[in-house]
């Protein structure tokens, strides 16, 4: 049988006395989108940082292609093909598209004894890579990252990871700060990455976005895996309720109503 690209077995993580992750077991296959759902503070970011080599599991093991692995540094995970894209995508806002695309792996051409940064190749490659994902508005590699929209930055970061041969693509809330249209661009890019056989771990707390692209869903509640199911096994309402920590949202609605009901003072002032 083929092994999952990435597998966690009984992974726990504590920071000193604080237990953040409890006994997590998860598998991600090639060409599959795993949606990691959970409320703020559930431990989603801690889980992916453990996969990205930022944190080491306190107990438990990580397997890649069936082989036990240990990451001492984020670079080790990156070298294995685990690419992480953070919420705001491009992390170098004052660098050009071409330059930031090739940070650390700059293309060079020989000029006498010198190895000169090949700006033209860098720009062309970066623009081509992102255009292949359908973002044709990016056509000039000299533009600064900070001038791109949030969706374009995500697209560029994903295109970069794919270009450098990522096998596992971890996206930490890529759609959280985006409008509807830009979020749908990013979701389309996630599907495109999946089509290329990449295992995608997609973190979100927007159930709609998860339902649109997910093959496999895992819900984290206070650091524990509360549910782990495949596409079609649960309805949107069930997922939403799960994320709210098992308390049905209907109850929440009733609670809000009962608070609003007898209220006769001035409406609460928004925080300054």
């Amino acid at each position: 049988m083929t092994h999952p690209v990435l597998e966690l077995r009984n992974v726990s993580k504590s920071f000193g006395p604080i237990d953040v992750l409890h006994d997590i077991s998860l598998k991600v296959n090639a060409g599959e989108v795993l949606c990691l759902l959970g409320d703020n503070g559930a431990g989603k970011s801690t889980l992916i940082m453990t996969l990205a080599g930022v944190h080491k599991p306190t107990t438990g093991e990580i397997f890649m292609d069936g082989e036990g692995i240990r990451f001492d540094r984020p670079k080790d995970a990156a070298d294995r093909g685990i690419a992480t894209v953070h919420q705001f995508g491009g992390t170098f806002p004052l660098m050009s598209i071409g330059r930031s695309f090739f940070v650390g792996v700059e293309p060079v051409r020989k000029f006498g004894p010198l190895r000169i940064f090949d700006r033209k190749t860098a720009n062309q490659t970066a623009v081509k890579a992102v255009q292949e994902f359908g973002i044709t508005r990016i056509d000039d590699g000299d533009r600064l990252i900070g001038g791109l929209s949030g969706g374009e930055r995500q697209a560029l970061a994903i295109a970069r990871a794919v270009h450098f041969g990522a096998r596992v693509l971890i996206l930490d809330e890529p759609t959280a700060a985006l409008g509807v249209k830009q979020a749908s661009h990013v979701l389309r890019i996630v599907l495109e990455a999946k089509k290329r056989g990449i295992a995608v771990i997609f973190i979100t707390h927007q159930v709609t976005h998860a339902m649109a692209v997910g093959d496999h869903f895992a819900v984290l509640i206070r650091g524990a895996l509360a549910a782990n199911f495949m596409r079609g096994e649960k309805s949107r309402e069930e997922i939403t309720d799960l994320m709210a920590g098992g308390e049905a949202l209907a109850d929440l609605g009733a609670e809000i109503e009962s608070r609003m009901g007898p209220h006769d003072g001035p409406p609460p002032q928004p925080a300054a």
Binding site: T91, F92, M95, R99, V103, E106, L114, R115, I116
Partner: peptide, 13 residues
Amino acid sequence: QMPFGNRLFAMGG
């Protein structure tokens, strides 16, 4: 003109 500069700007960013 060299890769060093790219790394310098990335590090500062």
